[in-house]
Design a protein around this nucleic acid. Structure first.
Lengths: 392, 392
DNA sequence: CTGTTAGCGCTTTCAC
DNA sequence: GTGAAAGCGCTAACAG
């Protein structure tokens, strides 16, 4: 005898209508009702596109829970059963559906990587480093590029978030002035790690190199080589990396009692096109600089090409130093003096920090600031004194 | 009165034990049984991490189907209800969970891209082209690189397949001789499109450039410039692109009645290191070649660097032609003669073909072979006769 | 126009 | 050691 769990009445009536062969019952006294499940029908022949644990269970005449347990390596399973399951799974080329798992656990095992571009050496190499670490930890990687555009960056972050990535590795676009979209990420408690182009105002881990000292060394090296009017083709002031390298430049000038000329400091948006324009501008000044410290190697290369096309001799009339040691720096003639940074390592470190955040509770999150070393590589583009390399 | 749907008996008994407050009933006569659902408990206060349609439905006192319909833009919905739902969704920053959808539809909206590497200009540019098309169509992209290794390629394909990508864009690794892993992809009816490094033995779309004619032009150009012992640093014979470019090379020699010397044709695995080794080998032959046609620009660049380091004069003593027009070709000195190919367009075309496969029924799949044009760009590295560009 | 229900594939209680 | 059932969030079929 069945009692209604709501009103304790004993009578149920079957209402008219059947849902897909199932019978529905309603309590006579209250609004409580339920549907009687349909008797199991073994003569069903579904054609699955992908093998599921249910297929294995059915073929073996056991329940899917047991299959699941065997596949997941639970201990309390009969050894024989386990073997049957594992063998059949192998034979059927069973592949667990990560979507089901993801839905259940709210974890996709996907990491989003957002970079400004990946045409040059720098970001691809970082990505390779990150991928190396992440794929070892069982994560796949989704890569987006902002093309230095703020709008694209916002769109990409939204896309990655709506793909429910488990974490985000980001290098900010040159045009980004507002970081609310990253705040939203942290608000949803999705781990976020910045590298190279970071957001110091956000409480989240970041990996950079020692930009200040690198820039300082670069400019001091130019001064020691005898250059006196040193320009700086800098990145947008919104980026910390630009500000740090600028400060290194300024302090090196100051240390050597060289005047700072604001006209020789140009902030630009890191696009190839603008690099060319500003290089031309600098070289056509009434009193052009005798050296340029460029924010990065692609910029330095553009400057070299412009200088060459104008017949300006490097390094005699113009010294150039870049940043990052792009392989092209050693190929171009004259070869480019630059600051080596452990590019691949940046990616690996960032990935490690991200994994740490993912595996820790939100309350334990720590905004670690990792700073890696740079190393000046002196090549031809800044060696004014050709004969003597050592000081007298 | 409730009848057992299996044996038509009328009596059910409640067995001892309650599952999470639910009561289970068993037929007295047969083994049929069911569980009576628990009465709805409105005083439940779950704390969700992410906003779901259920949250919206509950707050509005309507059903989640209605919310779903409103959000999906179905027409048959009361305008007022729709507005309420849309407003609340906005206010709650509701984001649909793509995992639930993916599980339901077996579509992830993710495309896997597998390339040999992305350090140089070529593959990143293709990826950008593909991404442009795919993201417009609502797809995200998952990028893997095989590092030219067969094993890594197999691993990557498996990883992408187990991520249930909706389609695959692939350029094959140099070391790949066996394509069973791609056969498995097609067997599972996952759309697959090859580009650049293709598998002609598989019945699936592919995008290449006119490698044969490109190579033919390149070598004919060298011959016209007066070079007579032309070597070819080729890719692995397993790749169609290597075979086509080799054939172009051979036919150009034949057309101009130049002998083919097997010692001047070297197949290699496309790694930077080996390029250097073989370049050195060629240049140290008792009768070294007076020109080299390289399978691609990175290879040509390596050859140039080796030649320079050995004091071999380019183009006077050694003519060099590459393939692809990597930006570095116009930067290096002497600038590199090469074949321009519409790199970005390759990615776009491949993406279009893939989208077509995805949207078509498997029975309609067509192994289209798209061939894009190449264009010889003559630069300094092959201009032996410096003064006269035109024939007499 | 709206509500109810099943089910995508899987893991995880709970019960035996 | 194994099975039954719930549920992750969503859409679609069906009933009203």
């Amino acid at each position: 005898m069945i009692k209604c769990p709501k009103c304790r009445e004993v009578e149920f009536v079957q209402k008219s209508g059947i849902v897909r062969g199932k019978q529905r019952y309603f309590c006579k006294s209250c609004d409580y009702h339920f549907t009687l499940p349909e008797p199991p029908n073994p003569t069903e022949g579904k054609r699955h596109h992908q093998v599921t644990i249910m297929d294995i269970a059915n073929q073996l005449g056991i329940s899917k829970s047991t299959v699941s347990r065997a596949l997941r390596g639970h201990t309390d399973i009969h050894a024989g059963t386990r073997k049957m399951i594992l063998d059949l799974a192998q034979q059927l080329e069973y592949q667990p559906n990560p979507l089901a798992n993801a839905l259940l656990k709210s974890r996709t095992n996907i990491i989003g990587i957002l970079v400004p571009e990946f045409r040059h050496y720098f970001f691809p190499t970082i990505i390779m480093g990150a991928q190396e670490v992440l794929s070892k930890a069982g994560y796949n990687v989704m890569i987006c590029q902002s093309d230095e555009s703020y709008e694209t960056e916002v769109t990409n972050v939204k896309a990655l978030m709506s793909s429910r990535v488990d974490g985000l590795l980001v290098s900010v676009a040159a045009q980004t002035n507002n970081v609310d979209h990253f705040r939203a990420v942290l608000r949803k408690e999705v781990p976020l790690v910045f590298f190279n182009r970071v957001c110091p105002e956000l409480e989240t881990p970041q990996v950079i190199v020692d930009d200040y000292n690198g820039a300082f060394q670069a400019v001091e090296h130019l001064i020691e080589q005898g250059y006196r009017r040193i320009a700086h083709l800098a990145g947008p002031i919104s980026l910390l990396v630009s500000r740090l390298r600028l400060q290194g430049y300024l302090d090196a000038l100051q240390k050597h009692n060289l005047p700072v000329e604001n006209g020789l400091i140009i902030h630009y948006d890191l696009t190839e096109e603008k690099a060319r324009i500003y290089a031309n501008y600098l070289l056509s000044l009434p009193q052009p600089p005798d050296a340029i410290f460029a924010i990065n190697d692609p910029t330095a290369i553009e400057i070299m090409l412009v200088a060459k096309s104008r017949g300006v001799k490097i390094p005699q009339e113009l010294g150039i130093v870049g940043f990052s040691n792009d392989p092209i720096s050693s190929i171009i003639e004259p070869s480019l003096t630059t600051l080596e940074q452990p590019v691949r390592e940046i990616g690996k470190q960032a990935a490690h920090l991200l994994l740490h955040q993912i595996n820790a509770d939100v309350s334990e999150w720590k905004p670690v600031h990792q700073v890696l070393k740079t190393h000046l590589i002196v090549r031809e583009s800044s060696r004014k004194e050709k004969v003597t390399n050592e000081p007298a």
